[in-house]
């Protein structure tokens, strides 16, 4: 493998515009405009942006839950609309913002969904589910047989994370995966995730509006503003950027001294 082969783009946005289908002229249904960026193999791209800026929409373009109105999104060198959507989605783990666990399945079945679809042998699936629950800090013995409604919001979110990781997909899309966790658990899960990320070298796109999370997890940060990309930065660049749009975020980073000031 040449040194460059690990640096090939796995996900590429080329002049991507997304408009809502069938919107009348009065409502402007253009949610994303002229997005251009790529995510290299093994990289973790953070999409940062305010509520409603189009982060979730951008993620859904990658696994073809949405299709671009103009331009193309390429995954592994092929436009998403050329992919068989099922094959594309099986390669991509997705942590959905609303979590979306199946209420009629146990945690075991929820997590093992994709391995089952892929017809893994039963014992391999079982072992994998246990491994993943441990990874996200849920003791398998006490969670395997429970149903989603018997879990707290943060526990459900961790199950959602385990489900996305289950079949070991090469690409991971994560929409605010740690949003419902308390700061301590979030740090733990995030740390586990960070280690995993380094170990497995997955290509990850993660959505957040939490700047410190973006700085810790991201190898690069893409800043979305009202449907356009304001810039793509390394964490260093982001901290030092003079652009008022990124500075606004950095200035909001809570430091202890700033917190004490406001008391």
């Amino acid at each position: 493998m040449s040194p460059d082969s690990s640096r090939e783009p796995v996900i590429e946005f080329r002049d991507v515009t997304y408009e809502l289908p069938q919107t009348n002229a009065s409502t402007h249904g253009r949610l994303l405009r002229d997005l251009n960026f790529s995510v290299l193999r093994g990289e973790t791209m953070v999409l940062l942006g305010r509520s409603g800026s189009g982060k979730t929409t951008a993620l859904k373009l990658i696994n073809r839950l949405r299709e671009p109105s103009h331009g193309e999104v390429r995954v592994e060198g092929r436009s998403t609309i050329e992919w068989d959507p099922i094959a594309l989605r099986r390669r991509i783990g997705y942590v959905i913002q609303e979590i979306g666990l199946f209420p009629h399945f146990t945690i075991e079945r929820n997590v093992s969904l994709v391995p089952r679809l892929e017809a893994w042998p039963t014992d391999r699936t079982r072992a994998r589910v246990k491994e993943l629950l441990n990874l996200v800090g849920l003791a398998p013995e006490s969670f395997l047989e429970r149903y989603p409604h018997q879990l707290s919001g943060g526990q459900r979110q961790r199950v959602g994370l385990a489900r996305a990781l289950a079949a070991d997909p090469a690409i991971l899309l994560m929409d605010e995966p740690f949003g419902a966790l308390d700061p301590l658990t979030r740090d733990e899960v995030r740390r586990e995730f960070h280690a995993l990320q380094q170990r497995l070298g997955k290509t990850i796109v993660i959505v957040t509006h939490d700047v410190s999370e973006a700085l810790i997890l991201g190898t690069r940060i893409g800043l979305l503003e009202a449907g356009t990309l304001a810039g793509v930065y390394s964490p260093q660049e982001f901290l030092q950027s003079a652009d008022p749009r990124s500075k606004a975020y950095v200035d909001h980073l809570p430091t202890r001294s700033r917190l004490e000031e406001s008391l």
Binding site: L88, E98, G100, L101, F102, L117, R163
Partner: peptide, 18 residues
């Protein structure tokens, strides 16, 4: 059915039949 459930089923790569 909660749209998030259907959407995550789709995102996991389930076919329409599944």
């Amino acid at each position: 059915i909660d749209p998030a459930v259907r959407e995550s089923a789709k995102a996991m790569g389930m076919t329409d039949r599944q």
